[in-house]
C-alpha cells in the first residue's frame, strides 16, 4: 500500500511536468496548427531562467583576502553579495535563497518574448507547410537553442536549490495515518504538483472565462469563420504562442530544484511530452493534461522492482506501449476531436 501511494506521488510530479509541456504543445498545435519540436527547449530555457535569477541575485563584488589562498596559492578573492550589502546578511540571504520562485517573475516576460520572437521570426513562415517540415525546422531550432545555452552556461548541470524551508522532505504516511516513516516525500515535489495544478487551472480559466479566450477557442474550432467576422485571429494566436512559451518556461523554472538544469534536459522531456499529446488527443487541452498525469503515474509504477522483475525493462517502454495500444484502439487519442491528424 505504501509503495503504491509513493509511486502515485512520484507519478504526480513527473506527470505535472509532462502535463505542463504537453499543454503548451497542444495550445500551439490547436491554435496555429504547428507541431513545435522546440517546445522542450522552452522548458529548458525556463530552467535556466532560475539559474540566471540565482546568479543575478547572487551578484557580488570581490575583495582580496590576504589571509586565505586560492587553488594556485594566490591570495583568495572573496565574493561579497550585493544583496547582503544592501539588505543586511539575513534579508540578503533570504532573497538569494528564494531565487527559484522569484525566477517566475523573470521567466514570464522572458519566455513570452522568446515565444513571440520564435513565432514571428521563424515559425509563421511554416504555417502552411507540411507537418514534416515544421518538425524538421523546430527540431533544428531546438538544437540551436540548446547549443546557445551550452555556450553561455556550460555543459555541466548547475544546481538551483529550493528555498531552505522547502529543501527537506515530510512524512506523508503519518499525515494520512499510515504510520510514521512509511511514505517520505520531498516538500518541493509537492509544491511543484500544486503549482502545476494552479497553472493548468489558470490557463483553462483564461480560455474559458475571458473574451480573449472565447475568441481563441472559437478560432481553434473554426479559424476561417472567426476571421470573416473581422477578428484578427492571427494576432491572438501569436499571443497564445507566447502564453504557451511562458507556461513551458514556468514549468522549467520550478523543475530546476528537482533536476539540476542542463542544456539537454528539454530533449529528454520533449519526446515523452509528444507521446503525451498524441495519447491525450492532438489539439485537446484536457486530453494533454489527463494523459500527462496518467502516463507519469504509469511510468512510476513500471519502475517498481516488483514490476520490473516480471517484465525487465518495462519502465523504459511502458509509455510507448500504452501509446500504441491507445492509438490502435482509439486513433484520435483519449479526448481528441474527430478529424484532427487522422488524414
Amino acid at each position: 500500500m505504501d509503495a503504491i501511494l509513493l509511486q502515485i506521488l512520484n507519478g504526480l510530479d513527473k506527470g505535472s511536468a509532462y502535463a505542463l509541456i504537453a499543454l503548451g504543445l497542444t495550445l500551439i498545435f490547436g491554435t496555429l496548427g504547428v507541431v513545435n519540436f522546440a517546445h522542450g527547449a522552452l522548458f529548458m530555457i525556463g530552467a535556466f531562467c532560475a539559474v540566471t535569477m540565482q546568479r543575478l541575485l547572487g551578484l557580488s563584488y570581490q575583495v582580496i583576502d590576504e589571509t586565505q589562498k586560492d587553488f594556485l596559492g594566490n591570495p583568495l578573492t572573496v565574493n561579497v553579495s550585493y544583496m547582503e550589502g544592501w539588505f543586511g546578511p539575513e534579508i540578503g540571504q533570504a532573497i538569494v535563497d528564494w531565487s527559484v520562485p522569484l525566477a517566475i517573475l523573470l521567466a514570464i516576460p522572458v519566455m513570452a518574448l522568446v515565444g513571440f520572437a520564435m513565432e514571428r521570426g521563424l515559425i509563421k513562415h511554416f504555417y502552411r507547410r507540411p507537418h514534416a517540415e515544421q518538425i524538421l525546422v523546430t527540431f533544428g531550432l531546438a538544437i540551436v537553442l540548446q547549443e546557445i545555452i551550452k555556450h553561455f552556461f556550460g555543459a555541466n548541470p548547475i544546481p538551483a536549490g529550493a528555498p531552505d524551508v522547502f529543501a527537506g522532505s515530510f512524512d506523508f504516511g503519518a499525515l494520512i495515518g499510515l504510520g510514521g516513516g512509511s511514505i517520505i516525500y520531498p516538500y518541493w515535489r509537492m509544491v511543484y504538483f500544486l503549482f502545476s495544478v494552479a497553472v493548468i487551472g489558470g490557463v483553462f480559466a483564461f480560455l474559458q472565462y475571458t473574451t480573449f479566450g472565447m475568441v481563441v477557442r472559437a478560432g481553434m474550432a473554426d479559424r476561417d469563420t472567426v476571421g470573416h467576422l473581422g477578428i484578427n485571429i492571427d494576432r491572438r494566436f501569436t499571443i497564445m504562442f507566447g502564453l504557451a512559451a511562458a507556461v513551458a518556461g514556468m514549468a522549467g523554472v520550478m523543475y530546476a530544484p528537482i533536476l539540476s538544469p542542463n542544456y539537454h534536459m528539454g530533449m529528454d522531456f520533449l519526446v515523452l511530452s509528444f507521446v503525451v499529446v498524441v495519447v491525450g488527443g492532438m489539439g485537446s487541452l484536457p486530453g494533454a493534461v489527463l494523459a500527462g498525469f496518467l502516463l507519469g503515474i504509469l511510468q512510476s509504477f513500471a519502475s517498481m522492482n516488483e514490476v520490473k522483475s516480471i517484465i525487465p525493462g518495462i519502465d523504459q517502454v511502458i509509455i510507448y506501449l500504452v501509446a500504441i495500444v491507445i492509438l490502435l484502439a482509439r486513433p484520435r487519442g483519449l479526448l481528441g476531436r474527430a478529424g484532427v491528424m487522422e488524414n
Partner: peptide, 30 residues
C-alpha cells in the same frame, strides 16, 4: 534517466541502510 525518484523510493522500504550509487556524470548529480 534524469528523474531517479521512482528508483530511489523503493530504497526507503528495502531495509537497506546504505545506498551505493554506481552512477557517473549528470546521472550521479541527479
Amino acid at each position: 534517466a534524469g528523474d531517479f525518484s521512482s528508483y530511489i523510493t523503493p530504497v526507503l522500504q528495502s531495509g537497506a541502510d546504505t545506498l551505493i550509487l554506481n552512477h557517473y556524470g549528470g546521472d550521479m548529480v541527479n
